[in-house]
Design a protein around this nucleic acid. Structure first.
Lengths: 247, 247
DNA sequence: GTCTATAAGCAGATAGAC
DNA sequence: GTCTATCTGCTTATAGAC
């Protein structure tokens, strides 16, 4: 489509274009001609700098995923959790921020990339599969999982690692549902749950549902949500947006 | 690959081959030549009977999804729920059976099909998108959602339709997590959660987590799971397998 | 390091014989 | 209704001039 942006460096221009095209359309659907045109470079440049379309894709995955990690320190900064009340608060902040980050990505949509590519035939290439899985796990899933396990074991210190892990899956699963099932839920409910006013209800529900399952009382939940209202949650979302936009 | 099965009818042979190939490899990754070869028919037969590869794919989606619905009446037969105790039991049966059906599909893997195709560029074709979304919602998501809403509103009759729907999302989201995140969780946990002995722990966890969030007491949960152990859950899984295999 | 030109192959769709 | 042969357009990758 649009071409002719200033290019400092053919290699970097290609990586930029690859990021934009691969994350929106997927590996198979993007042709090398399209990549070259978007980057404003010659077709042969891809072979010269990367050797193949596959290798360019792999480098793009690594770049995107490692940037994603830098962009989400907000609810993952592993600030120590001193009290039960703080753990409850951190879980709320986590759910609100994580849902925001997966439903309304500001940069490239890494969720779409990982779900699409992990099911698509491109992953029959073992190089692509390995790059995808290791990048996604190290830069995206593991930090999220670790933070959740930290929160959960503060709330229930008697829990083993396996049980805490399963609880982390339940929280992540509830959130990513709205990404993986989005078109189907939109049709089913006749509204897009990732848009307001439903989105706020979704955030509140996932936080509440998870806290109830963790044995937190209604009073504690209400108090925390009211305390956070208009303060930490919003400021955290703000911080996320600001941080992401400068990335 | 393998060819030369007896073909009663070229059209049916093509639909059979299309089901096998499209569900395992996806729309883009299957060529018309491959389809014709697998079906043991001539290449031109596809155009003659279906007009295009796209139309053959759409008919395949409809066929697969409507068959899927017939295969899962077990936890969706909408048998009336008379008591709170029965609602708790039905939720357990639902979670165990639903997880089994999505993690260990006996026929074509409809989950893989829907998640892959819904993110892939094939859905830029509005005909494919419409066929996919309406089939998935009508034959797969809505029955599951309705059953869950029925169970949840028995447990908490004061709930509105929106809140009950959000709880249904939470249950489905927890289950489908193990499908959509399977390769990543396998790497993260160094074991495949869809295989024993972890799979049983997952089933038990999702049921317990959801019931706790619905305010069901530990005693009620324990009693129900113990009662179902070796009886309803297993027999329901058996029924599912038997029913599916004859499909 | 970047360019043009082209190779080699596969895609979906079609024309026309039978 | 099924076949063969072919058309047109696309893909990735490469060879060689500059």
């Amino acid at each position: 489509m649009a071409v002719a942006e200033k290019k400092a460096n053919a290699r970097d221009a290609l990586l930029e274009a690859a990021e934009a095209l691969f994350t929106t359309k997927g590996f198979e659907a993007v042709s090398t001609r399209e990549l070259a045109e978007q980057a404003g470079v010659n077709l042969g440049t891809i072979q010269y700098h990367f050797g193949s379309k596959t290798q360019l894709f792999i480098e793009t995955i690594r770049r995107v995923m490692s940037r994603r990690r830098e962009q989400q320190p907000l609810f993952l900064d592993n600030r120590p959790i001193a009290s039960r009340a703080q753990a409850i608060e951190e879980l709320c902040v986590f759910v609100y921020s994580f849902l925001e980050s997966v439903c309304h990505p500001v940069g490239p949509d890494v969720c779409k990339l990982m779900y699409r590519e992990c099911l698509s035939p491109s992953t029959e290439d073992p190089d692509i599969f390995e790059a995808l899985v290791s990048s996604v796990v190290n830069e995206f899933i593991r930090p999220v999982d670790q933070r959740l396990v930290q929160i959960v074991t503060t709330l229930q210190p008697e829990l083993g690692a396996d049980e805490a892990g399963l609880i982390a899956h339940s929280v992540i699963g509830q959130c990513s549902f709205y990404v993986t099932h989005r078109p189907f839920v939109t049709r089913l409910r006749h509204c897009d749950c990732t848009c307001e006013p439903t989105f706020s209800a979704v955030q509140r529900h996932v936080a509440t549902f998870s806290l109830r399952a963790l044995g937190v009382s209604e009073v504690e939940i209400e108090t925390t949500l009211r305390r956070l209202q208009g303060r930490a949650l919003e400021s955290d979302a703000q911080r996320f947006k600001k941080f992401s936009q400068r990335g």
